[in-house]
Design a protein around this nucleic acid. Structure first.
Lengths: 249, 249
DNA sequence: CGAACGTTTGAGATGACTCAAGCGTTGTGG
DNA sequence: CCACAACGCTTGAGTCATCTCAAACGTTCG
């Protein structure tokens, strides 16, 4: 089922089987995309949204010298640009980081299934607001944390997000990103990101090597990154492995 | 009319008179709030949302040492925490910066008027997504701009947002924020914010004194802050005064 | 084998921070 | 009406985190 991972494990919204089938009926096409492709250039108006089935996709804003800030990344099961449905036009660009598989959902079809269903509408609305919550936390991250904290925080976030869809066991996960990608996420330079990863390794907190992330000290990493999983709106947010580190402060 | 400024001048969404009346019918109460009050503490679940009628309100995330990052600020006419309607629970806190007047809208009433009206629902959805677009741009700001650029960018944003509701003439506006507030917005320290404001003054770009902002060189300020107003989704985004500075890069 | 790409390391520059003190304004109570 | 406390703004000196520029190294893939 293509929508299986959509809103999986999210607090307070449970999609019924019927709602999932309805959503799937709105899918016009499934498409494979190469890594490092721009799916939607900045400022474009589009009539479809894409549900990410596999791979990692980024949303970005470039400055006028081409320096890029990633403002979000998406993992499988997430609606990448559902924002465009009410907004008609996007203020940012969307690009694949890895190879990806996406389901195309035309807004007309979305409208057809959502108009008679306020409950389902509210659930999709909710899913776009999770993105907003992520934005806020990313803002906190780059605004208030130092370089080591930012990377630590990001690695904690990815661990939980991937765990929610079965792509992390809570300790180890494949993060198909380069150090340059992490730099664009955390508002750092590539060089400094490399040094930060070494510091995390030497501190015994985690080990990142060739896109494999191994978390050695989960509570320590969470503490270093000031990480509080509440904003992810996951069920059982800090599932037993001690990632709920904030409360001891 | 209490909802007069709501979604004023926003591209693509025009509220009909009837829709405004319907919205007003959902208002349970109008309340005055003192400056520097916490309206909603972080992580609380609430059953009402608040439409801001007057004043400035912030949304914030604190780290575990109490350092605060503002993740949004709201000007009159905006729905401060409509996010809580689909989300049930907020991941951040809300506090007044200035004295404020707010209209309280219970979620039950909102549900009653929105359920039969997919179009109006989509417009409110849109209004929460503007917040998300702001978040993204703030993320770009703190992630990719230097201190002077961040403050310049912020002052450009406030100029346009206040202009859209008639609180700026495009050159001069009252910004009832302290330098400490601006610091918490831009991810800087108070001391450095002070120095940055002096630099902007000495560069002849703008003059900030006792919460009065006077923009002396609008295109220059926009250029320095890498400011592109597209993300505000305003009609006539760069209204004739040369704020559309990005294209010359 | 060589090109392309990602990672690693070094040395030096600099932007922003910290700590500290002084100044100006406002509001309040003696 | 003055004195003083509270608050916000301003400035200085020294430190530190991160950036810039540069080069080398390892891997993958054609």
């Amino acid at each position: 089922m293509l929508t299986q991972a959509f809103l999986a494990n999210r607090r307070g919204v449970e999609l019924s089987l019927e709602e999932r089938q309805l959503l799937e009926s709105a899918i016009a096409e499934v498409r494979n995309v190469e890594p490092r492709q721009t799916l939607i250039p900045p400022r474009s108006s589009i009539a479809v949204s894409t549900l990410l089935l596999d791979g990692i996709v980024s949303r970005f804003i470039d400055d006028h010298q081409g320096l890029r800030q990633l403002v979000a990344i998406h993992v499988p099961g997430e609606f990448v640009d559902l924002h465009a449905y009410p907004m008609l036009e996007l203020d940012h660009g969307i690009a694949t980081l890895t190879a990806a598989r996406v389901a195309i959902v035309p807004h007309a079809a979305l409208r057809r299934i959502l108009d008679p269903r306020p409950d389902l509408t509210r659930k999709l609305w909710f899913s776009t607001l999770i993105d907003a919550a992520l934005h806020r936390t990313w803002l906190f991250r780059v605004g208030r944390l130092d370089a080591v904290g930012r990377v630590a925080h990001f690695l904690c976030e990815m661990n939980l997000r991937l765990q929610a869809i079965g792509l992390s066991d809570g300790q180890t996960y494949a993060l198909a990103l380069t150090q340059a990608d992490i730099a664009e996420i955390c508002g750092l330079t590539t060089v400094h990101t490399n040094r930060v990863l070494r510091q995390l390794r030497e501190a015994g907190l985690c080990h990142v090597h060739a896109s494999l992330v191994e978390i050695l000290d989960s509570p320590g990493l969470a503490r270093r990154g000031n990480f509080d999983p509440h904003y992810l709106y996951l069920n059982v947010p800090a599932s037993g492995n001690g990632t709920n580190a904030i409360d001891l402060a």
